[in-house]
Amino acid sequence: MSRKTELLLRAVGGIDEDLILAAAPRPEAGGRIVWWKKGVLAACLCLLVGLGAVGVYLLRPSQTPPASDPTAEQGERAAVDIADLLPQPDEEVYTETVLYVQTLPVAGRAAEYHKVTAGGRGSDLLPESLGEPLEGAENWYRLAGHDELQYLILRTEDEYSLWEFACFVVWDEEQASEAAQAEDWGEYAWMKEADFGPYCYADALEAVYGVTGAQDIVSVTVTPDPMDNTDAGKALQRKIGTKTLDGEEDIAALYNVISGIICLGGDHWELIGFNDTNLLEGVRLTRNLSIELSDGRKIGGLKYTAVSDRFYEYGGIAYEVLDAASAAAAEQILGIER
């Protein structure tokens, strides 16, 4: 390092104290709120994992894997059941107040994965659950016996960890323009060729979840959104109740709608439209979907709100507004009355 560069680093150390404190990554310093679904923990499964100080540790390539390759002699094995890896229904697990995020090359796009807390037994099972390596991403593996990419395992020298697909990254024009000017992409050189435009949910269903049609879906559980936890809000949630769609026609109709929705990427709360909405009204017009697949996996996170006639997900991931016919179809299937 040059002396001047070091001087600069030291000089940064001497900036005004109020600036240092304002930038401190602590909860009261501001920042975005990230909601994270904890699949099997309980009915009220939304866990606020970060307020402002949402620290994220993206594992570095220098974290090399162990010399031996546990997958080398695995041979043909039964498919890992994700339910074995996640915390058991009554299991108490330590959950970090940190959301770990990784961006990986999947199907010509940049896929965002979030770290999932494994259960006690699941943690023990992870080393023997490694499946085929993920192409283009060192140390990342599918689950043994699985082709799809909903869950991946990261192997580092310290640990094995479980990750779940969140979304494909979508850039707006400003982001694309900024990226176009970047010269050194470092370890993310693969992103130069990636597609960051809006995408059809059918692409994610097929490339990530391995869902190619309504036949892959066994049922869809529809629940009210717990956005209003006042007594009135809870009463309305109870009144709406849980609805299970398991009829072929309903599932086909719902698949027909969701396979055509276009994802616009995250941080689009302004599009989702709850800013000026009474939360009770939000509960009335919104439903959460849990899609159960024929191999036992579940796809959570997708929601529909008639507030803005669109699907959305955690993290402000917004989809394009449905046309009137599709919105009417979705609302009829999901049991939303205007």
């Binding site: 994220v56 540790y57 959301l99 970047a182």
Partner: peptide
């Protein structure tokens, strides 16, 4: 990468 996570952005951005 940590900052990217703190702000919900890609590391590249």
């Amino acid at each position: 990468e940590e900052i990217a996570g703190q702000y919900g952005m890609s590391a590249n951005r």
